[in-house]
Design a binder for these strands. Structure first.
Length: 644
RNA sequence: GGCGGUGUAGCUCAGUCGGUUAGAGCAUGCGGCUCAUAUCCGCAGUGUCCGGGGUUCAAGUCCCUGCACCGCCA
């Protein structure tokens, strides 16, 4: 059996701060890394930041600084976030590391020498404002969607990677290795994409357009562009071509990504590896998105919960547990503070925390806080619980390698629940009353202590701090990363006579009723502040300024949905003249309900195109939380009537 | 427009190869216990399995079709 394990997260693009998506990917990788350590594997865990490209240059400019200063700052934010989440990475790579850049150049040269990189000129539609090419389809009405200007035809020469050459090889490889890309839905997506002919990949930018990158070794007028630079980190971090880490860990490489970067990892990267003469990675593991909603209790707007901020509030372990328990790997999941509190209260405080607490309390009370021997007699319920523990351990070992973390955790919790039930069945407080039953009482509490120890070991990859805390109180302190399942989850591995300590609750409960009240109070306060603010002088306008608005009453003549748009409706409105207006109200009004409705229109708004449809004005509406209500007149007025 | 996914209890979701009375957790109600963080244990429900049609002795499951939402591609 191969007992090495190499896991990577994507290197995160430093044009934004770390958010929950980054955190989940990284925590998943961390749990996997810790799990394999627990199983006795030799592991290597890599994360880092992607720091080249024009978006970085733009972001730096926007921040009023130079690219190097900017990427240093953002990269540092990532590097400092991970320890707070107890991430156990062995290395943090940056694409601006000189060593990485050298490997990128080495591989470029190698692929170039092999004839898989060629030079070609092409013509395209180029927007000078954006400094980029557009395809016909990206243009709106023949104009750049950002600058509203027609692009110019421009010829540019660039280097291309002959990706198409490896299409058939890749299809065959994916078909031969069913778990090359998993879960299956993403494998199918890649295969679907590969049914169409693959185009070659443009991998360069002329330096006059982009200087913030790795220069091509065979043409210093160019730098390499995005993916060629970024993906190579997975091998450059291991010291490719001849690093010892590379020969040890690359053969077992696994990547974790979110579904938005499936194509580069599922298609570009394997073909790049093939062209460079490197064997493909073992597995690409793809997860879904966290949909952030604020739960059904609070519909507050403008109070976007930043999930990462909740980690210190509720505890890193609770946060990690929630993410791993709540998401089925591969599928999307919902994130809300309520759901987090719910999990914390019921799974962590009530089930696990309370089991630990009552076990230790009884040990203190009946055995002066020392681990008792396995007394006698042994009854069937003892054996049943022991079996349950074995079942949980097997399920755990089986599910985690399949990335089914929720199932592994469910199995652990079945064991925890069984232990709680066992206490009820055996009633230690009754046994304690009868001195003749001391042996039985010993058996019961020792059994419980052992279950708690196994629990501590099993939750260690998910909640390392909790595991350490539990083990310390059980009198067998071990660092989470030094735990080994075979040794430390072995039944009877506690030390008889060792002192255990009750200590504070592992997971204090959160009073959800109180939390909701506070939340509501906050929200009310914010709303009051908001309306106060808007009445303050800061944004006052003069009457003359108001007069510049040409507001007119009108009546809706026609209304229809704009295809493919969720929000937009196309309206014909009579405001003395007929106007076509696009309004973002489709989520609130059905077209048929609008015809004949009195509305107020801003008539002198500069016309604009929305989804390719011209809008000559704007309909006024009032916001009420998530709800939107049209502004109308008290009674019908003649279309075109001035509103003032 | 093409391809794919999803739709199951109040909420979040499982449901294998078509096979008994459709399940779990949370939330709710009732009962029990007192070691424990007002926790734990037991019991109890509640379903148009998105709609319609078909195949079959038998359909949540397979086929066709419609609707809704989502994703990928164009």
């Amino acid at each position: 059996m191969d007992t090495r394990f190499y896991i990577t997260t994507p290197i995160y693009y430093v044009n934004a701060e770390p958010h929950i998506g980054h955190a989940y990917t990284t925590i998943v990788a961390d749990v996997m890394n810790r799990f394999h350590r627990l199983m006795g594997y030799e592991t290597y865990f890599l994360t880092g930041t992607d720091e080249h490209g024009d978006k970085i240059v733009q972001a730096a400019e926007a921040a009023g600084t130079d690219p190097q200063t900017y990427v240093d700052r953002i990269s540092r934010m990532f590097r400092h976030t991970w320890p707070k989440l107890n991430i156990s990475n062995d290395h943090f790579i940056r694409t601006t590391d000189p060593a990485h850049m050298k490997v990128v150049q080495y591989i470029l040269q190698k692929v170039y020498d092999a004839g898989d990189i060629y030079f070609d000129t092409y013509k395209g539609l180029y927007c000078i404002g954006c400094e980029r090419f557009y395809t016909e389809k990206e243009l709106v009405d023949g104009k750049c969607p950002d600058h509203d200007k027609p692009p110019v035809e421009r010829e540019e020469a660039n280097y291309f990677f002959r990706m198409s050459k490896y299409q058939d090889w890749l299809i065959e490889h994916i078909e031969k290795h069913p778990d090359f890309i998993r879960p299956e839905r993403y494998r199918n997506e890649v295969l679907a994409f590969l049914r169409e002919p693959l185009e070659d990949l443009c991998i360069s930018r002329p330096k006059e357009r982009l200087s913030w990158g790795v220069p091509l070794p065979f043409d210093d007028r160019y730098v390499t562009y995005v993916w060629f630079d970024a993906l190579i980190n997975y091998v450059s971090a291991l010291g490719y071509p001849d690093g010892e880490l590379f020969s040890t860990f690359w053969p077992v490489a696994q990547h974790v990504i979110a579904k938005d970067i499936l194509k580069p990892h599922g298609i570009y990267w394997p073909t790049m590896l093939k062209a460079a003469g490197i064997e493909p990675y073992r597995h690409l593991n793809v997860h879904g998105y966290w949909k952030i909603n604020e739960g059904k209790m609070s519909k507050s707007r403008g109070t976007v919960v930043r999930p990462l901020d909740l980690a210190p509030v509720y505890g890193v372990d609770a946060f990690r547990y929630f993410l791993m328990r709540e998401m089925v790997f591969g599928l999307d999941a919902n994130f809300s503070e309520e759901a987090l509190i719910q999990r914390l209260n019921s799974d962590l405080a009530n089930d696990l925390g309370n089991l630990f607490s009552r076990t230790l309390a009884m040990t203190a009370k009946y055995f002066q806080g020392t681990v008792p021997p396995f007394g006698n007699p042994v009854l069937p319920e003892d054996q049943a619980l022991e079996r349950q523990v074995q079942d949980a351990v097997s399920a755990y070992r089986e599910e985690i390698p399949k990335w089914a973390f929720h199932k592994a955790l469910m199995a652990v919790w079945e064991m925890i629940n069984a232990a709680n039930k066992y206490i009820d069945q055996t009633g230690p407080w009754e046994l304690a009353k009868d001195p003749d039953k001391k042996g039985r009482l010993q058996r019961v509490l020792r059994t419980l202590l052992e279950v708690n120890k196994t629990t501590a070991v099993l939750v260690a990859p998910f909640m390392p701090q909790t595991a350490e805390k539990m083990l310390e109180r059980l009198g067998v302190p071990v660092k989470a990363l030094d735990l080994r399942l075979e040794r430390d989850a072995r039944w009877g591995s506690l030390v008889e006579g060792e002192r255990v300590q009750k200590g504070a609750a592992l997971f204090p409960r959160v009073d959800i009723k109180k939390w909701q009240q506070e939340k509501n109070a906050e929200e009310r306060k914010r709303n009051v502040e908001k309306s106060d603010e808007s009445q303050k002088t800061s944004d006052l306008i003069t009457f003359q300024e108001f007069q510049r608005l040409d507001l007119r009453a009108g009546v809706v003549l026609e209304a229809e949905r704009i295809p493919k748009s969720k929000k937009l409706l196309k309206l014909k409105v009579d405001i003395g003249e007929e106007r076509q207006v696009v309004a973002g109200i489709a989520e609130h009004y059905a077209p048929e309900d609008l015809v004949g409705k009195q509305v107020v229109v801003v008539a002198n708004l500069k016309p604009a195109k929305l989804m390719g449809v011209e809008s000559q004005g704007m309909i006024l509406a009032a916001h009420d939380g998530d709800v939107l209500k049209l502004v109308t007149t008290d009674a019908p007025v003649i279309p075109g009537g001035k509103v003032s």
